[in-house]
Design a binder for these strands. Structure first.
Lengths: 354, 354
DNA sequence: TTGTAGGCGTTATCAC
DNA sequence: GTGATAACGCCTACAA
């Protein structure tokens, strides 16, 4: 009866038509609700469909109609914890309009990114969502002629069938740094990301802006560059111990590096936040479960994913789209503390040694 | 010259044929290397292809050939940190044979799982990789008639065009528990996952087996059920404080719950591992960066993903596949410690109260 | 309302 | 080697 296999993959619309005693077009109309059909035929067709476990061939349908009901999602690394929430938002939102996301990773390579985009376009996706991405704006504009494009995490000139959602990294970083300054910290280290990465440089600017606003001189020895990974954060922290032993707070430009820095501090027997305050950026799902829970700048990634999905749908419909930049919020948790709350003098030699 | 847009999506094989002064079949042959073609025509066609920026329509190609060069990957939650590494392994390995993975999530719902599988089949994927999954074995066998199936994390009867890679959860859990017993722990709590989850129950069996082997009576009050999430682990730990305050070690049946338990311990002011030893399962990428680094059972998830991808390819070729279960290894890090290293008697009432 | 016929862009089977 | 020709399975005017 309910055998979901039975060669059902080979059942075609034509066979259904024959079994129901109608024409193929009638079956098609019923399938797509394109036009009214008499009740009798409707019943007959539905019966045949159920009986044969008929399933329309998506390929043929797309080829004929020109629409694939598919949205390409170009991410840097699909398995990254950072992108996970974005993808979830996109996936959830796309479900309703009956669209299927097609996830691909470009592994931070601009060349691969373009190749992947071409690939998606060759698959005739109805639209594309790009998370970050390093493709030049000029190229993006041109690609947008082939399919509506939504770019997340970048700021682009408005253009038909090309929408973007910039993320205010600078303000987020400024807030985080100001928070540390407000707690009395002066020697605040900054662990930067890759210099060719927009998020990274913007956050660096925010850090500097906060220092300047507070009248704190920028000290280059407090800045160290890493690669947005945990291991990179660990190494960065170790280097900081040498270049700037006086530091009392560390601002890592993403959570993953903060995790690495946290471990480096633990290895040195330094307590967080009693000895050193630590701040991250992104608010990864696990950051709230770090020991202690990490103070960080929260990006509403899930919501951003939803926004992006809605935007492509609108672009596909031919509507113009403008997305307001989403607000980043500083999540003050337990890795930051007033500088002099526990002075180093209060600690026993044992504690200092860890 | 190198304008990648220029309506290239509308350029068809036929136009290339016309421009090169050959028949469509010849162009097709050159594209697929199906047969030898004279050098002259070869050149002409390649020139036309470059000139027009021609890209074959994947849809039409698939419809005509019957192959989509696409592998469906059915996961419970694409954004889960747990599945990330598996997906990465699959993606990397599929790249070489020119296959594109199609990731879909079923959100732990058996009904949605079947629906997603049907959807993938409707897309005419050449094969499917299922991560865990709750679809009955009987159904899987039937589905495997439509496309080769590889099921990860489950043990199934051998069948043509259906391969599985079981994971020895029981041994892994036994090793972890034995490790704690070897450290002198007797009151070892177990935080279980969902009871309808294979991994969960198998790990529970391993826990009990280790206790039995050591002659330790099983104590139900030391077991609490959770849902494989961080929040669930946190709550489970809180319940354990009430049902079994005597515990000196906690074995969480996955890392995410261990994260939650870790936070609960921190909240109570209990030190890890000095006061309580903690063990997880899975070895998520961030587990090594917990404070302190989490002792856990490592699954070689990336490698498993690679294996699975290779297996589908073999199944598609019609080869028979048998995958040996991969070994799980206990990663002894810093959340476990000999029980009496610091006796509870050494602690001040303050410390005990947290 | 319903059916017919042509087309979507390739591949594959034939002859030549 | 190369070129017609018929699928592949569905959609969509157009006609009835």
């Amino acid at each position: 009866m309910s055998d979901p296999t039975s060669r059902s993959s080979n059942v075609t619309l034509e066979e259904i038509a024959r079994a129901a005693g109608v024409s193929p077009s009638t079956v098609s109309r019923i399938l797509n609700g394109t036009a009214r059909v008499s009740d009798a035929k409707q019943q007959a067709v539905e019966k045949a469909i159920a009986e044969f476990h008929y399933q329309p061939n998506v390929l043929a349908r797309s080829l004929a109609s020109g629409r694939t009901n598919t949205i390409g999602v170009l991410t840097q690394a699909i398995a990254s914890p950072f992108y996970g929430e974005w993808l979830r938002g996109i996936e959830d939102t796309l479900l309703d309009p009956g669209l299927t996301p097609l996830f691909v990773s470009s592994h931070w390579s601009p060349a691969e990114e373009a190749a992947r985009l071409e690939q998606l376009l060759a698959r005739r996706v109805d639209g594309v969502i790009i998370l970050h991405g390093q493709i030049s704006e000029e190229l993006l504009v041109r690609y947008s002629a082939r399919a509506p494009l939504v770019v997340l995490g970048r700021s682009l000139e408005p253009h038909p069938s090309l929408a973007c959602l910039p993320i205010d990294n600078e303000t987020g970083a400024r807030d985080a740094t100001a928070h540390l300054i407000g707690l009395g910290h002066r020697d605040i280290a900054f662990v930067a990301g890759p210099p060719d990465h927009g998020d990274s440089t913007e956050r660096f600017v925010g850090y500097q802006a906060a220092l300047a606003a507070a009248g704190i001189a920028f000290d280059e020895s407090l800045v160290v560059e890493a690669d947005f990974t945990e291991a990179g954060g660990f190494r960065a922290m170790e280097r900081l111990f040498e270049t700037a032993p006086q530091l009392t707070a560390v601002f890592c430009s993403n959570d993953q590096m903060a995790y690495g820095a946290r471990l480096a501090l633990y290895r040195r027997g330094l307590r967080v936040p009693e000895d050193i305050s630590l701040v991250g950026f992104d608010d990864l799902p696990t950051s709230i479960y770090m020991t202690p829970p990490l103070t960080t700048v929260r990006q509403p990634t899930y919501e951003i994913g939803c926004l992006a999905a809605r935007a492509v749908v609108q672009l596909i419909r031919g509507e113009t789209v403008t997305m307001d930049p989403v607000p980043l919020t500083l999540e003050i948790r337990e890795t930051t503390q007033r500088r002099n709350a526990v002075d180093t003098l209060d600690r026993t030699p044992d504690e200092i040694a860890g």
